[in-house]
């Protein structure tokens, strides 16, 4: 019995002078939803292609479901499902024909594994005679997922399933993934939407081919060290500009209705301790100060609150380091 569904060790891959993946290592446990979170160009697709045996790494090793991605590629391909980032189905075939095709290629039938895709396929059933190319974005995504699942893979690879898909369809898609996890399928999913990190069991934050952090989403946000505030006023553009000038080391970015202001960790943190409890006690004195500063700058309807870091705060912070 192997203990890891995916094992990546020191993987590197360069395209000419561009190092797409630099010495990346991570493990995914059986039954886990593991997220590769990062912007375009972070190396997500290159990692997917290596792990699905479509691309040879320059250095390093990887195994999926106990099979080496280079040596055992033939067997490996039977055991995995792969949904690439671009819509990869036959646009001229109908919904049903696409599914039939993928079942045939893997030497199985739709009926045999229907239970696995039923929840998803019932939503497609009314359109089963429609050409895949004529489906809406959300429907295409559901069909692609069905086709990747039809041979009951042990490990599912989903490369940016949410890109260009509206928030409603994205949410439905994640609900489907959570149900799939209960059928004992390990899922590696990549996304550029940071808010989706919170839906994974564990995540790796990826930037320019390197892993910035690996942890549970809660673990990543709990690790944020700087005093963090949420602020708003009537003029958000001026608010952000003014808060950046509050003191050296202050960073300020728009976060929804509020702007997040991060102060320098060293400025407010006592030298003896780095416990968050100490820094939050110090930050409570900071709020009236920030408020006063904004008043002298002529802001109106000012609101300043303590806030906790989101994955995006953490990602921005890790990018700075």
């Amino acid at each position: 019995m192997q203990t890891k569904s995916i094992k990546a060790q020191n993987l590197s891959k360069a395209y000419g002078p561009v190092e797409a993946v630099k010495n990346v290592s991570f493990d995914v446990r059986p039954g886990e939803i593991f997220g590769l979170i990062g912007p375009d160009g972070a190396g997500k697709t290159t990692l997917f292609r290596i792990l699905t045996s479509l691309l040879l790494p320059d250095t390093g090793q990887a195994s999926v479901d106990g099979l080496d991605v280079v040596q055992d590629y033939k067997l490996l391909r039977q055991r995995i499902g792969y949904m690439p980032g671009r819509f990869s189905l036959y646009q001229d075939l109908t919904v049903q024909e696409n599914l039939q095709f993928f079942a045939n290629v893997f030497g199985t039938t739709i009926e045999k594994n229907y239970a696995l895709i039923r929840d998803i396929y019932v939503q497609l059933e009314p359109f089963k005679h429609r050409r895949a190319g004529a489906l809406s974005g959300g429907m295409k995504q559901k069909l692609a997922l069905c086709c990747a699942l039809i041979h009951k893979p042990r490990v599912l690879f989903l490369d940016e399933p949410g890109t260009g898909v509206d928030p409603v369809s994205r949410k439905e898609f994640w609900e489907m993934l959570r149900r799939l996890r209960d059928s004992d399928i390990t899922i590696l999913v990549s996304t550029a939407y940071m808010d989706e990190a919170e839906l994974c069991d564990r995540v790796a934050l990826l930037q320019k081919g390197e892993i910035l952090a690996i942890d549970t989403p809660q673990g990543i946000t709990a690790n944020y060290q700087r005093p963090l505030f949420a602020a708003r006023s009537d003029d958000m553009y001026r608010l952000i500009t003014d808060l950046r000038a509050l003191e050296p080391g202050a960073d300020c970015y728009a976060f929804g209705e509020y702007a997040h202001l991060a102060l320098a960790a060293t400025a407010t943190r006592p030298t003896t301790s780095t416990r968050p409890t100490t820094s939050s006690r110090r930050t409570s004195n900071a709020i009236p100060k920030i408020q006063q500063y904004l008043e002298t700058k002529g802001h109106t309807n000012i609101e300043v609150l303590n806030t906790t870091a989101t994955i995006e705060d953490c990602f921005i912070e890790l990018m700075h380091n």
């Binding site: 972070a42 550029a192 970015y253 728009a254 995006e312 990602f315 921005i316």
Partner: peptide
């Protein structure tokens, strides 16, 4: 959709 796929810092 000017910001699809870019990192959180660049997006801001």
């Amino acid at each position: 959709e000017p910001t699809s796929g870019v990192d959180p810092l660049t997006r801001r």
